[in-house]
Structure formats: structure tokens, C-alpha cells
């Protein structure tokens, strides 16, 4: 771990000003961490564990859990399923289908309206910690593009922590890589490390394929 970063626990003070950030709370004139997180030198607070909180424009991956005449219920890692109305979207879905959607509107109580719904081809959906999603995407999608390139198929990362990996890609390799990112999400220089890892992995598989022949 980086030395100039410090892990803060719930209830630890992160600033002596009122900040009103997500996953924090204000008491008096001070701001405190509400979940375990990282505090760097400049006083920037990054939560390490958190629940998904829907925001407008978020890309989500969801699983259809109920099919009704009026529409579909989708599990998007919230406490209650969201609803895709067949009035608004002309998509034909079945139970267990995977969809990617864009969040249109979020209501005060946490209900979600969709702006865009797309059915995804068959693949694997994994649960990923929502707080670590920015690390998996990387700066300007650098990390996820790296994995896509090496796994040879499409991967969609939902802000809600559901990650879809297409059937056509190297799923074991993608899973292995994502696991490393989960373990080391709080460390710096991760993209380089993952690039090296993927290079080694694909190199090894080529060699073993050759010797197998």
C-alpha cells in the first residue's frame, strides 16, 4: 500500500470542514467517514466498501427476475428489483436474460427509471464490489480495454457492481484478472501490474498450446 495513504474506519474524522460527500456524515462543523475508506495526503476520501447507490447516466448490468404482462423486473443489485415497462421499451426478454441499461431518473426513495435498455448475448455475470468499479474501468477505460483485448471478447462493467463477460471471451482469464483487481484495488500502479500479468498469462498459454501439439 502507498505510504502516504491512511485507512480510515467508520466514525473517524476526515475533515474539519463540512464536506457532504457520499459515504460520509457531518456532525457539527466536521466530516466523518461512514464506511471504511482511504484518506490520502490531500484529504481526499475514497470509500473501499460500499453499497451501490444509483445515479443518473450510470450504466448497469441487470438480470431479469420476473416477466409480467406490463414489463420485466430486473435485479440491479439494489434492495428491491427495478422495473422495465414494456410500454417504454420494445424489448423481448425472458427470465434469466442479461440486460444492460442506462439510468434515466432516480427518485428520492431510490427507485430507478431507465433511459435505455439493451439485451445482452449469453455470458457470465459476476458480482463485483461497487466501490471498486472505477479501478476496473481505469482512466479513460484503460483497464477494461486491456482485459477485453487479452480475453478476446466483450466485457461490460455495470456501475452497480455486476460485470458481464461474453461467452466468446476467455472467461477464466478475465475472472482471474478481475480477482486481482478486487484484491489490489487500493494500490497504485495497478494498470501496469495487470498489463504485465496479462502478458505473462497469454504468453504462458501460447507456450503450453505449442508444447501440447
Amino acid at each position: 500500500m502507498n505510504n502516504n495513504r491512511k485507512i480510515v474506519l467508520p466514525g473517524e474524522r476526515i475533515s474539519d470542514k463540512k464536506l457532504y460527500l457520499p459515504n460520509t456524515f457531518v456532525e457539527g462543523e466536521e466530516t466523518f467517514a461512514a464506511v471504511i475508506g482511504m484518506l490520502d495526503e490531500e484529504g481526499k476520501y475514497i470509500p473501499l466498501e460500499s453499497r451501490y447507490k444509483p445515479l443518473q447516466e450510470d450504466t448497469l448490468v441487470g438480470i431479469v427476475t420476473d416477466v409480467r404482462h406490463a414489463g420485466y423486473s430486473v435485479d440491479i443489485n439494489l434492495s428491491s428489483p427495478a422495473f422495465i415497462s414494456s410500454k417504454d421499451f420494445r424489448v423481448e426478454l425472458n427470465l434469466g436474460d442479461i440486460v444492460s441499461c442506462k439510468v434515466g431518473q432516480v427518485y428520492e426513495v431510490g427507485d430507478v427509471d431507465f433511459a435505455e435498455v439493451k439485451k445482452l448475448p449469453p455470458g457470465k455475470v459476476i458480482h463485483y464490489p461497487p466501490a471498486k468499479v472505477p479501478r476496473l474501468i481505469g482512466r479513460k477505460s484503460s483497464m477494461i480495454n486491456l482485459i477485453r483485448e487479452h480475453a478476446g471478447g466483450d466485457i461490460i462493467v455495470g456501475n452497480n457492481g455486476y460485470v458481464w463477460i461474453s461467452e466468446t471471451s476467455n472467461i477464466p482469464l478475465a475472472l482471474k484478472t478481475i480477482n486481482i483487481i478486487i484484491q489490489k484495488a487500493h494500490m497504485s500502479g495497478l494498470t501496469d501490474e495487470i498489463a504485465q500479468f496479462l502478458k505473462n498469462q497469454t504468453g504462458e498459454s501460447k507456450i503450453s498450446a505449442q508444447t501440447g501439439e
Binding site: P10, F25, L48, E49
Partner: peptide, 9 residues
Amino acid sequence: ANAGIPMRD
């Protein structure tokens, strides 16, 4: 705390 449930203390 491990679950990431917001707590005041």
C-alpha cells in the same frame, strides 16, 4: 464495517 454499511461510530 467490513460490509460497508454506513455507521456513525
